[in-house]
Simulated scan of single mutants.
Amino acid sequence: MRRFFLIIVAILVLVLAFIPLFRQQNPARQQESGNKITIVYDNKALSGFKGSWGFAALVKFKNYTILFDTGSDGEILLSNMNKLGIDPKSIQYIFLSHIHGDHTGGLWAILKENSNVTVFLPSIFPDGFKEKVRSFGAKVVEIYEPKEILEDIYTTGVMFPVGEQALILKTSKGLVVVVGCSHPGIVKIVERAENITGENAYLVVGGFHLFGAPEREIRKIGTSLKRLGVQKIMPCHCTGSKAEDIFAEEFGTDYIECGTGKTISW
């Protein structure tokens, strides 16, 4: 009996000894525990928030806080952020996907609250828009080619038509791709993200621009995304209710419903 007791004690000692080692060998897991995307502007909204046509999401990744797009109405954007406990002054970077007003309209309200930001925007934006951003005291970084803009954070570069960029986060689970309206096509955007980084996409969040698209096309897109390795999707904004229903059917529990106030973490 005593021998059995000693064996148990020895095993417990070994387990306790290896726990710190295990933690040291998994820094990525510790580092990414606070990573999340919070929808702060969308057509749909959870109870207590305001929904309106447009899109914006707050991305917290590593030590970075990035506002992806700004919706169409600054007052609504700030109201939703306030209810979520998000201080505009905590934003370090603003990433604008494309020039359309439902993605840039709330920018000026944010800059009035916090001009100490860097704004990543497509170089094809009008010069007057860029100068207005600078007039607040914000820094403008013009994007055209795909590149790494922060540690493990990339832009797809400007894609046509419209001239749109998407945000790519390189995580331990795979790529997290955040899109505005996907005017170039959501599959093409994910393909480019994977080509840039050499990794598969894990999660795709944002507007898929599929309202009015036929069912056959939507199902083909779902199949293509799965083929590219996409595990989870959160279609928002301009995706369309029919496409959302089809994606929910195709992805099952890996489909995440979008709406202002919703948070997804990894």
Rank of each mutant, 00 (worst) to 15 (best):
I124F: 05
V205M: 09
Y202K: 01
A166K: 10
L96F: 03
F160T: 12
I39L: 13
H100W: 12
F136S: 00
Q30K: 12
S115P: 06
N82L: 06
S241F: 05
E148A: 13
P20Y: 07
E250A: 14
E194S: 13
I168N: 10
G174T: 01
F120R: 09
I91G: 09
I7N: 02
S72A: 11
I233M: 10
T118P: 01
E244K: 15
Y144H: 13
L78H: 04
S97C: 11
Q25R: 15
K220A: 13
V141M: 08
K62A: 02
P126E: 07
F247I: 03
I168K: 08
G48D: 05
T197K: 13
E249K: 10
L228I: 01
S79F: 11
T156A: 08
I37S: 00
K226Y: 08
N82S: 15
F120D: 06
G71L: 10
I186N: 04
Y64S: 02
H237M: 07
K139V: 12
I256C: 02
G157Y: 09
W108Y: 15
L107R: 10
W53S: 11
F129L: 09
G207F: 06
L58T: 00
N63R: 11
G185K: 00
L67P: 08
I39Y: 04
N195E: 13
E244Q: 15
Q30V: 11
E75A: 12
K50T: 14
K130Q: 14
P184S: 03
T104K: 03
I91L: 13
K36D: 07
I196E: 10
L121A: 14
D87C: 01
T197R: 10
L14T: 15
L84I: 02
M234I: 09
T197M: 09
S97Y: 07
Q24A: 09
G206Y: 04
G34V: 09
K226Q: 12
L121K: 12
P214T: 05
A28I: 03
K36C: 12
G51H: 04
E217I: 07
Y64V: 00
D152H: 09
F251H: 03
C258H: 06
S90N: 14
Q25A: 12
G212C: 02
G137Y: 04
S79I: 00
Y41F: 15
E131G: 04
F95K: 07
F95S: 14
G71H: 10
I233K: 07
I143E: 12
F160S: 09
P126Q: 12
E199M: 06
G105R: 15
S265E: 11
V230F: 03
M159W: 08
A109M: 01
T104L: 04
L228Y: 05
G261I: 00
K220T: 12
S172H: 10
F22P: 04
F55L: 14
F61T: 00
T156G: 06
I124S: 05
L6I: 08
I189G: 06
G74M: 15
T263H: 05
S123I: 00
A193D: 08
V119C: 06
E164T: 09
L96A: 11
G51L: 01
V59H: 02
L84N: 01
A166C: 12
N35M: 06
K232G: 01
I186K: 06
A201D: 01
F136K: 02
G198R: 06
S265Y: 07
N26D: 13
K50E: 14
K50D: 14
L77G: 11
W266Q: 06
L175H: 05
V176T: 07
L169Y: 10
